[in-house]
């Protein structure tokens, strides 16, 4: 009974458009999900599917020419879209934090790690003393597994390795003890061994700090590792959503299936050939009338050409937007 429990974050029918000289780009077109306390949700999709834009809308970091043009974002019962810039600023870093993809460019090169960590505290709390802030910064760096934290706070970003910097980014995001952490491809820019370490760290911290996480990635393997539930996005829409087990072992939407088939899986005995998804994502400036995935779908039907599919309820909170579920006059789940 998801609905009865109070949720940390509810996003309903969120629409974000970029108004470019070439026309309106519907980057996010009617995205809905709920995120409970202490829950980790993955948002998966190819580049340009709107997953980052959706997250920026939640934390209020959309830049011109991007604008929220519809829907609602409710955080602990408060409507975030009605907040002004100053209220949003107070939310950021304190209640909602974000980690970004590239730790190489996301830290300001001209300030020390400590300075940037402390800033996350001091900009929300005028009274905190410098010493206390520094103490917190050091403790936080230790928590994310950085050795020699006393020395590291005095160092500049360029003196740290990529993995270290991402740890520092995580420390910076968590220092304000946020209720929600949005991680936008936090491991993409790192090499595989470091990726695993960072994922372990996040899993660990999530348990310790009771933070909810929205984990944005194009890597389904990462999702399986850390998430409770998954939303699969394609061209600005969520095409399938459900528990991580359902999505992985019982994918229903052709896009999810294609995505899974295109990824190497370690849990399967026989090594199947990887099948790439043919074609390229649609042009969001000029989306098709029918299903967005239609042009690339292996099982495209006539109805897919003209009409967008509604969500089919497949039980256990598992939904999928595909016409195939409505064949033969009944909502049908494909047998695994």
């Amino acid at each position: 009974m998801e609905e009865t429990r109070k949720n940390l974050l509810e996003v309903r029918d969120l629409k974000v458009s970029f108004f470019t000289p070439a026309g309106e780009v519907k980057a996010v077109d009617g995205v809905s999900y709920t995120l409970g306390y202490n829950e980790v949700m993955g948002i998966v999709g190819e580049s340009g599917s709107g997953k980052s834009v959706e997250a920026y809308a939640v934390i209020g970091l959309l830049q011109n020419p991007g604008k929220v043009i519809g829907g609602s974002i409710t955080f602990e019962g408060e409507d975030l879209l009605s907040y002004d810039e100053e209220q949003m600023r107070n939310m950021r870093g304190k209640n909602i934090s974000m980690i970004f993809q590239n730790p190489m460019t996301c830290l300001n090169p001209v300030y020390t790690i400590g300075n940037q960590l402390m800033e996350a505290l001091t900009c929300h709390d005028d009274k905190i003393s410098k010493e206390a802030a520094k103490e917190r910064a050091i403790r936080m760096l230790e928590l994310v597994g950085i050795n020699n934290a006393e020395k590291r706070v005095e160092q500049y970003p360029h003196e740290l390795s990529g993995g270290m910097r991402q740890r520092a980014m995580i420390a910076m995001a968590l220092i304000g003890e946020p209720k929600l952490l949005i991680a936008d491809e936090p491991t993409t820019a790192l090499d595989v061994t470091i990726q695993a370490q960072i994922l372990d760290l996040m899993k660990d911290l999530q348990r310790k700090e009771n933070t909810s996480i929205i984990f944005i990635t194009h890597n389904l393997g990462v999702v399986a590792e850390i998430c409770d539930k998954v939303s699969v996005m394609y061209a600005g829409k969520i095409v399938e959503q459900g528990d991580v087990g359902d999505i992985f072992y019982d994918p229903q939407h052709p896009y999810t299936k294609a995505l899974l088939a295109s990824m190497p899986r370690l849990d399967e005995e026989e090594h199947e050939r990887l099948i790439p998804i043919e074609g390229t994502p649609i042009d969001l400036l000029d989306p098709p009338q029918g299903c967005n995935f239609g042009p690339r779908c292996k099982d495209c039907r006539k109805i897919c050409l003209t009409k967008k599919p509604p969500y089919a309820d497949l039980g256990n909170g598992h939904i999928s937007a595909c016409w195939l579920h409505f064949m033969d006059g009944a909502v049908k789940k494909e047998e695994a």
Binding site: K302, W323, D328
Partner: peptide, 20 residues
């Protein structure tokens, strides 16, 4: 789940095999 729109599903039930 709240995303599922019953009226849209009812409409979808009316589709014919030709549509598929």
């Amino acid at each position: 789940p709240f995303q599922v729109d019953p009226s849209a599903i009812e409409e979808a039930m009316l589709l014919t095999p030709e549509d598929f």
